[in-house]
């Protein structure tokens, strides 16, 4: 193929194309070789042993895979890992400071904001992102005054957390926990 590497395997199906990356996850450099088709979610879970981020739908519909990318919420199931080699990734495993829980983690336990726990890592990362967005003055669809700093009342929290599904129905606890930390 004009001097390029032949990537064609049996029956015309190309061998997987891989890329060597140096990810930064929870403040730690993580060199990794990935299939270019691989999502960040699969890299975290299958290669880096960071199984906190969950696969609920793999289509960006449930929020269970939410992580923070440069401090902003990102759906890791919709993020190709090859696009994440120059960003700071934080997963649920990176929220706590050693044994000291992040205030959101403590508030989730205190408010029983979880049942089966499968959506919980995504809810926590999403909540951390939502608090940062509000602190930066980002309005939401329900912010009444777009010119004033948003106030995280219950409706704001519900709206900002509405991309994270919880089939157990732990929403009252989740909203209360986020509200407790927002105050």
């Amino acid at each position: 193929m004009n001097g390029e590497t032949d990537i064609t395997g049996a029956d015309g199906v190309p061998d997987p194309v891989t890329a060597d990356l140096r990810l930064s996850v929870n403040g730690v450099p993580r060199p990794v070789t990935v299939d270019t088709r691989e999502t960040l979610l699969d890299t975290l879970r299958e290669h880096l042993g960071l199984t906190g981020a969950k696969k609920g739908c793999d289509h960006g519909q449930c929020g269970a895979c939410t992580v923070l990318v440069d401090g902003r919420r990102a759906l890791s199931c919709l993020t190709l890992t090859v696009t994440a080699d120059d960003v700071e990734i934080v997963t649920v495993e990176g929220l706590a400071d050693g044994d000291a829980l992040h205030p959101l983690q403590a508030a989730f336990i205190e408010n029983d904001a979880l049942q089966c726990g499968y959506c919980t890592p995504g809810q926590l990362c999403s909540a951390a992102g939502a608090l940062a967005e509000a602190a930066d003055g980002w309005p939401s669809a329900v912010t009444p005054d777009l010119s004033a700093p948003p106030r995280l009342d219950e409706t704001e929290i519900r709206e900002r957390m509405s991309g994270n599904l919880c089939r157990c129905g732990a929403y009252p606890g989740i909203v209360a926990a986020v509200g407790q930390v927002a105050r």
């Binding site: 879970r45 042993g49 960071l50 199984t51 906190g52 981020a53 969950k54 696969k55 997963t91 649920v92 495993e93 929220l95 706590a96 829980l101 983690q105 989730f108 336990i109 205190e110 029983d112 979880l114 726990g117 499968y118 919980t120 890592p121 926590l124």
Partner: peptide
């Protein structure tokens, strides 16, 4: 009583079926 596996679940340490290697 608080959910006894609460810390495991909020830290991402709780291991679900697919998370075995």
């Amino acid at each position: 009583l608080e959910r006894v596996e609460g810390v495991e679940k909020v830290t991402g340490r709780a291991r679900y079926a697919y998370e075995n290697f």
